[in-house]
Design a protein around this nucleic acid. Sequence first.
DNA 1: GTTCTAGAAC
DNA 2: GTTCTAGAAC
Length: 207
Amino acid sequence: MAATSNAKPKRKMKDDDSDGLPKKKPTQYWNQGLLSSIDDPELRVDADDKVVIIRDKYPKAKFHFLAMPKVNIPNLKSLKREHLVLLKHMETKGKEIAQRFDSRRQFRFGYHAVPSMSHLHMHIISQDFDSPSLKTKKHWNSFTTEYFHDSEDIINMLEKNGRVELDTKKYQELLKNPLKCHVCLKDLPNMPNLKQHIKSHDYSSKK
DNA sequence: GTTCTAGAAC
DNA sequence: GTTCTAGAAC
């Protein structure tokens, strides 16, 4: 008698491996994705001996880049005072890039409190948030609540305390906040409405 | 981080 | 009925 299969797969998947090899694929873990992006010439927009700047693969605004140190710093918690020069350099480079791509547009430069991707990265992001890759409440709140820490605030924290320690739980809760326009603070019921609403603001020039 | 989709919301 | 989101899978 043939073996019975009583469990329906919940989603379709390839399990047609007639070669008898294990089904586990040798893919890298998704949270290490920046390690390959950092060396991808397609994404790179600038580099020097200390820092690489790449385009975000899934930009959440018209202009969205990541500045990363060449030395491996896993996260904010790894930062020491000895990194202050590097962080200031990253911020300077970030501002140069923003200036280069659109000198009139407003940008922010900063870090997510609890980033998904390993390897310290500073976001360089224009404040229009006009992008098809901006889809979820988590996306929105990660750039428009205190979950987003300006580079200068991180630098000040490190100068003052010698380290950057953030309450992970507190910041993860912020991602669930109701949707609110970052310009006029209007409440919006869902993402499609929010995306439509923010088009009404003018981002073409700094005020 | 993204994709996919079940079930909530409308 | 369709739209939208949240959580699992990857």
